[in-house]
Amino acid sequence: MPFRAYLYPLLAMLLWAGNVIVSKLAASSIAPTAITFYRLVLVLLVMTPFIVRPLWRNRTVLKRHWWQLAVCGLMSMALFQSLSYRAADSTTATNMAIVTALAPLMTAILSVLLLGERLTVGMAAGGLLSFGGLLYLVGRGDVLALLHEGVHAGDGLMLLATLIFALYGVLLRRWRLSVPPWQMIYCQALAALLCMLPFFLLLPAGHAALDATTLPLIAYAGIGSSIVLSFLWIQGVKLLGPNRCSIYVNLLPILTALLAIAWLHESMHGYHLIGGGISLLGVLLAQTVQRPLFARRASVSGLGQSMF
């Protein structure tokens, strides 16, 4: 396997970490609804000249899957992004990245619940570890504090956003849409834009300003994290496979923390290292330990029994 194959998911995670930093910077300068709307407009403007002909040629398939594409766009490009920007207003970039890195584990658990996939030892042990680490993280080193103070709004919103993103991944696996990746991205962005339009129009004056501060953030969110990141990830999955690529998500908190310290001057605390480390260890267990937790007995007439 050429070395450049491993660079694709690595660079994708670096861009995703940058997007978390952009979310924090945007929290104080533009409404979450506005930056979500503008980034979608930019994605469509950039992609339309290159995608319009393939879309027209594939219109019969797209018409057949229009409602699935709309649901996927609502979840991944409208709800996930809006909630992430909203969460950035009341939590740190490091916390956001650690919670987001739980997406592969959540996807695996939802696959067991919704797709009937088998529960593995890694999922069970990793789920418990990640949950404990997350409690330690959001409690800032004191799990019992959650009983009195509850979960901080930003952490709760980020957890909800990650759960929605995980459900999006499960639905993609269930539906197995026969739509090329770039066409899928474009259709999802279009559906998300239509969903966001009413909320954008209801924004108070001044909450959707385009100026020297917000334009670079929108450009990064629209081109860097929506188009370039998608290309890098698609290439990585094509060359390495989805399982290998998913392990790179564990790098997201580390890369984000480094950028947050350098760019936002965030402080790194012990509860970040301990809680985040335990959570990521749980995700790694879920991804690597694939032995079924419960063995199923299958009898074969005249040939004895096999264990699966």
Rank of each mutant, 00 (worst) to 15 (best):
residue 150 G to W: 01
residue 300 V to I: 15
residue 260 A to N: 09
residue 157 L to D: 05
residue 123 M to V: 13
residue 226 S to A: 15
residue 240 L to G: 03
residue 267 S to L: 13
residue 208 A to K: 09
residue 274 I to P: 00
residue 246 S to H: 00
residue 13 M to N: 11
residue 196 M to G: 12
residue 223 I to E: 05
residue 205 A to K: 13
residue 90 S to I: 08
residue 31 A to I: 07
residue 263 W to D: 13
residue 1 M to H: 11
residue 18 G to D: 03
residue 105 L to R: 00
residue 82 S to P: 01
residue 298 A to Y: 13
residue 244 R to T: 12
residue 106 M to R: 04
residue 90 S to R: 06
residue 302 G to M: 11
residue 240 L to P: 06
residue 253 P to D: 06
residue 203 L to N: 02
residue 297 R to F: 10
residue 140 R to C: 04
residue 300 V to T: 12
residue 261 I to F: 14
residue 111 S to R: 03
residue 126 G to I: 07
residue 49 P to C: 11
residue 83 L to V: 02
residue 84 S to Y: 00
residue 195 C to R: 03
residue 285 L to N: 02
residue 179 V to F: 03
residue 203 L to G: 01
residue 273 L to C: 12
residue 275 G to L: 00
residue 30 I to P: 00
residue 74 L to I: 12
residue 53 R to L: 08
residue 185 I to W: 04
residue 240 L to I: 02
residue 162 T to R: 07
residue 75 M to I: 02
residue 205 A to I: 09
residue 96 M to A: 14
residue 293 L to C: 03
residue 97 A to H: 06
residue 65 H to D: 03
residue 80 F to C: 12
residue 288 T to A: 06
residue 268 M to D: 06
residue 292 P to T: 04
residue 42 L to I: 10
residue 145 A to L: 12
residue 280 L to K: 07
residue 23 S to A: 15
residue 302 G to V: 09
residue 117 E to S: 09
residue 170 V to L: 01
residue 177 L to A: 10
residue 247 I to E: 09
residue 142 D to R: 13
residue 37 F to C: 06
residue 201 L to K: 11
residue 61 V to K: 00
residue 42 L to S: 04
residue 71 V to T: 05
residue 114 L to T: 10
residue 105 L to C: 08
residue 52 V to N: 05
residue 234 I to S: 08
residue 99 V to W: 11
residue 18 G to M: 08
residue 257 A to F: 07
residue 111 S to W: 07
residue 107 T to I: 08
residue 220 Y to M: 02
residue 107 T to W: 05
residue 300 V to E: 11
residue 185 I to G: 14
residue 229 L to G: 04
residue 228 V to Y: 09
residue 219 A to Y: 02
residue 285 L to G: 07
residue 59 R to W: 03
residue 184 M to H: 09
residue 63 K to G: 14
residue 138 V to S: 11
residue 287 Q to F: 01
residue 116 G to N: 04
residue 124 A to K: 02
residue 301 S to A: 15
residue 24 K to Y: 06
residue 251 L to C: 05
residue 175 W to Q: 02
residue 278 I to W: 04
residue 180 P to I: 00
residue 125 A to C: 12
residue 300 V to W: 10
residue 103 A to T: 15
residue 114 L to H: 07
residue 232 L to D: 03
residue 291 R to W: 12
residue 207 H to M: 15
residue 7 L to K: 07
residue 179 V to S: 09
residue 218 I to S: 01
residue 49 P to R: 10
residue 38 Y to T: 00
residue 49 P to T: 09
residue 47 M to D: 04
residue 66 W to R: 14
residue 94 T to P: 07
residue 124 A to M: 15
residue 179 V to T: 13
residue 15 L to N: 11
residue 171 L to H: 08
residue 207 H to P: 03
residue 53 R to F: 07
residue 101 A to N: 06
residue 246 S to Q: 01
residue 295 A to H: 12
residue 19 N to V: 11
residue 257 A to H: 02
residue 282 G to P: 02
residue 188 Q to I: 04
residue 90 S to T: 15
residue 209 A to E: 14
residue 148 H to R: 15
residue 164 I to E: 05
residue 273 L to D: 02
residue 238 K to L: 14
residue 64 R to N: 05
residue 120 T to P: 10
residue 247 I to L: 15
